[in-house]
Amino acid sequence: MKTIRIILADDHTVIRSGLKLLLERQPDLQVVGEAANGRQAVDSAAALEPQVAVLDIAMPQMNGIEATRQIVARNPAVSVVILSMHSDEGYVMRALQAGAKAYLLKDSAEADLIRAVRAVSEGKSFFSPAVSRMLLEDYMRQMQQKGASDSYELLTSREREVLQLIAEGKSNKEIATLLNLSLHTVETHRTRVLQKLNLHSVPELILYAVRKGIIS
């Protein structure tokens, strides 16, 4: 069995050691480095080349979101899991824009962290159920209040497939291979999906997919 190498960044030692204990109960998970702030996290990600970085948002010197941006910019192979106290859409959006793959609420970290780490190591996104629920509720309320019909109905089944694969974090090339399409066709589908749903970026698309329950 292949071990998943993880670095852990949180300025609270108690949480860090607790999470480490939690992760290392799993035989295939190994915490290779720890950091007490964003800068240390960026340094150890560069030095240790882990598959997964688990970062708290609120950290001194450099916060988790800025650290995510730098880690992903240097090494896109590192999948970042964000730990946060906030279930608000603004934070989720910011984390996704910075390049995070998973967004966890600290209240439920002990239940979701292992699943999240496994998901991102396979290239998938992951959101705490509480976050998904909240995003979905807000979306439903907006739809209801606007009285607008769901633009998801406008998508063709092929476009829905492409939407799900993009939301799961697949690259255009991967999608082309999976669906047996040309790269150009995938790009066309991608543009059309964004247009039909009135979205402007992949993070927005991921949020949309979470709201719709297309991905977890």
Binding site: H12, V14, I15, G18, M85, K106, D107, E110
Partner: peptide
Amino acid sequence: LHDEAGQALSGLLVDVANASA
């Protein structure tokens, strides 16, 4: 409240999960 009390409780939750396991 958020950083100290909140984080301490988060830590507590993780510890409880560990103890439970």
